[in-house]
Design a protein around this nucleic acid. Structure first.
Lengths: 223, 223
DNA sequence: TAGATTGTTAATCGATTAACAATC
DNA sequence: TAGATTGTTAATCGATTAACAATC
């Protein structure tokens, strides 16, 4: 990476400018920005300043600008940010324009809930098939045993796991088939078996635990 | 707080020792620690050192000790931490011993998934009733219209929202009935109407968006 | 042009890590 | 006692905020 830039020399310096790499904290804020911008779009708002956005997001204007500047120059001095353009850019950064196709292994409640979320309803990620359970909507349905055979034909990039058992074996099969991302709602924490695959373990009661902590604290603060 | 301590003077200094307040980052790690400790308990492990725990959690031993030291002295020099004791302490910190009772407003897929999570299965939080939908397990069922009337009789501390509409009005009713915490799985972001209530908006597709971002990045890193 | 607001640099703040005395 | 490992203090690192020149 460094070497390529050195070869390119100063010529590309202004186009392909060196930016500070986004921190994980920055990345985690992007979905919230994206959601709010989507609201603004449906509300017909055309432009927004970093300070207006900051107020709505409960952060500082500086932080908004810093966060966005990691990825590019999306705004315009004296004007602010074009809502549609910014939303589009963030969608792109979040990989929502990559044409992801998802397969579901099992169809637990978490999977159903995910299918009802904006990302799937809008079709940013497309649900193409389900294995070992009844599908929802237009998804193709397959037996669990057909996973290995059918998977390579689906052009899927990510998988959603809500199966009751065998998650480890299934993960291996998914990796072999070139699946690049796995959302694991199973109670078995999984570790990616190879560098080409990213695995995210989701713990549905986490928000509940954090809520309870904050409730506890709120009570203490009163005392 | 400060004034009370000043009145107490140095007498209580060692008992009620001044600790650094836990950061939000620290709090967010607690559920993971708790989950892993629960696993160790069922596996029969009696003690664990900060360095062993750190390795499993993918953090440093320093961080483990700092995180825990915010809340108390849970370990013992030369020994490490007693697994059961530490798990119990973290449960307590996370408010899991507070006897929380939850009511469900609606019974969407997210609510169902939550009911199947360890927190509810273990009974750390008790599901007592559902309004406007069919219940699961032992929950009492009520019409949505009965919310205002029945709520005060249930002794509920928190509410889980998966209703299709009217979330804002319902929130008001919940607040009036003294509900202290709300998990909102609705697509309408909610803001707490009063200081006694903590509201947590949950966005189910967030993990999916972050996964897609990391997939994108993983691909770029290869190039 | 004047006003507004960005992208960016420097200053501050907070969180993580390293180191070590205390002590089981 | 010797070895292990904590709780804690100091050093480092990174993220947030403030400030401002660039510029639309």
């Amino acid at each position: 990476m460094k070497r390529i830039d050195q070869v390119k020399g100063t010529f590309d310096q202004d186009k392909d400018k060196r930016r500070t790499a986004p921190s994980e904290a920055t990345v985690k804020r992007l979905p919230r920005y994206s959601r709010y911008l989507a609201r603004l779009i449906s509300g017909g708002t055309l432009r927004i300043s970093s300070s207006a956005l900051a107020e709505k997001m409960g952060v500082t204007a500086s932080q908004i600008r810093q966060d966005l500047a990691c990825f590019g120059d999306f705004g315009q001095q004296g004007y602010g940010y074009n809502v549609r353009y910014l939303h589009h850019k963030i969608s792109r950064i979040l990989g929502m324009t990559a044409g992801h196709r998802a397969v579901f292994v099992g169809m637990g409640d978490a999977a159903r809930a995910l299918l009802a979320s904006p990302t799937f309803v809008r079709g940013d990620v497309l649900a193409v098939a389900v294995f070992g359970a009844e599908g929802v909507g237009e998804m193709a349905e397959y037996e669990m045993d057909d996973l290995k055979q059918v998977l390579p034909t689906l052009g899927a990039t990510l998988a959603v796991l809500t199966c009751r058992q065998g998650a480890e074996d299934i993960l291996k099969t998914l990796a072999d088939a070139g699946i690049q991302g796995v959302l694991n709602y199973t109670n078995t924490p999984l570790v990616s078996p190879c560098g080409e695959m990213t695995v995210k373990n989701v713990y549905l009661d986490d928000p509940c635990l954090l809520l309870c902590y904050h409730m506890e604290k709120a009570r203490e603060d009163v005392e």
